[in-house]
Design a protein around this nucleic acid. Structure first.
Lengths: 184, 184
DNA sequence: CGACTTAAGATACACTGTGTGTCACATTTG
DNA sequence: CAAATGTGACACACAGTGTATCTTAAGTCG
């Protein structure tokens, strides 16, 4: 299948957008392939010419965005800039809020956590190690707290500004980990 | 339907256990009603005489355990005993490890979080309030961190002892919140 | 203990969604 | 323009759900 064919690009784009729209209105689980193809105005069989099933379509969307996200959350070699990173992540999340909510509500939520753990392992190796707490636990706590706080922020309708949230996240998570590291 | 009839109790018990066993081996989503009834050695129609569907059976299991859990995690009026509470929660979780993993892997995971938030609201009102961070955010961070750490512990095969974990949780979560409260 | 009550089993059914096969058609590409 | 190929529409077999009906087995209670 030729990726450059305009028809291929158009069909996949329509299918992806249809999934996002449908998740917004009814969640992920209850969506059927027929619904997706109807919403996308695409033949039923055509769906299977591109994806093996609903999960694979979701996967294509997730993979596409997770790379961006990892790049943004990663430390820019300056270890004191984690607050800046947090803010950058919040900016990115806000502009892709629908997509992130979709991922968090779907079965792909674990992948986001995995990605965050990878980032956290990089960052943690530099600044967050502590003799009091095993490093895998530190990493996991950092990653899952970040995801969880992002999620809370999105689900509250972004009631606080990005700057406020970055500050809260700093107080609740980053400050804690730095302090544990400093006690060594 | 008479709840005291031995046949009713036996059937429901068989169905519940079948669900737990099946989730252990293949996860929740892919299980069909027919599989459950076959595993439980119960007629297909019989399932619907007791539960409206798969989710309702899960719900029955979850409801049953969440009450216990809330009672255990709740503060025993002594606000300094949170470490003791944590340890008690870990004991309970360990003895029901399979069930908790099932809940965390299923769609009912959010309910566990909700229950923890309720507990946290009680506890937080006493000891965890801070002028620097909105109280709903404090509560959510406490609850989701606890759940997340419990989950990590279970999924790592309980590699650390309950006492170690209680100590780590104290350092990562409880200590942080208390400190924020103390800064007022 | 025995008659009564009622839950459970077996089977058939309509309905919905999935995934595949086929063929005519339309669009892109060279 | 012509060949290549992605697309749409329709038909199909299959699996799972939830319901109806009738019979059978088991527990309950006097």
């Amino acid at each position: 299948m030729n990726e450059n064919d305009l028809r291929v690009q158009r069909t996949r784009s329509l299918l992806r957008q249809a999934l996002i729209d449908l998740v917004k209105s009814q969640g992920y689980e209850s969506i059927s392939i027929r619904e997706i193809t109807q919403k996308a105005q695409v033949g039923y069989k055509t769906f299977y010419r591109h994806y093996a099933g609903k999960d694979e379509l979701l996967q294509a969307l997730v993979d596409e965005k997770i790379d961006d996200f990892k790049r943004i959350l990663s430390p820019p070699s300056d270890p004191t800039a984690s607050q800046k990173n947090t803010l950058a992540a919040l900016v990115y999340i806000e502009t892709h809020a629908e997509l992130f909510l979709m991922i968090l509500k779907s079965s792909a939520a674990d992948q986001l956590l995995t990605a965050a753990v990878e980032v956290g392992r990089e960052e943690g190796r530099l600044t967050f190690s502590s003799s009091q707490i095993p490093s895998p636990l530190m990493t996991h706590h950092f990653a899952s707290s970040m995801i969880s706080l992002f999620r809370w922020w999105l689900e509250s309708g972004m009631a606080y500004s990005k700057e406020e949230m970055a500050n809260y996240i700093d107080l609740l998570v980053i400050h804690t980990l730095k302090q544990l590291a400093a006690e060594d």
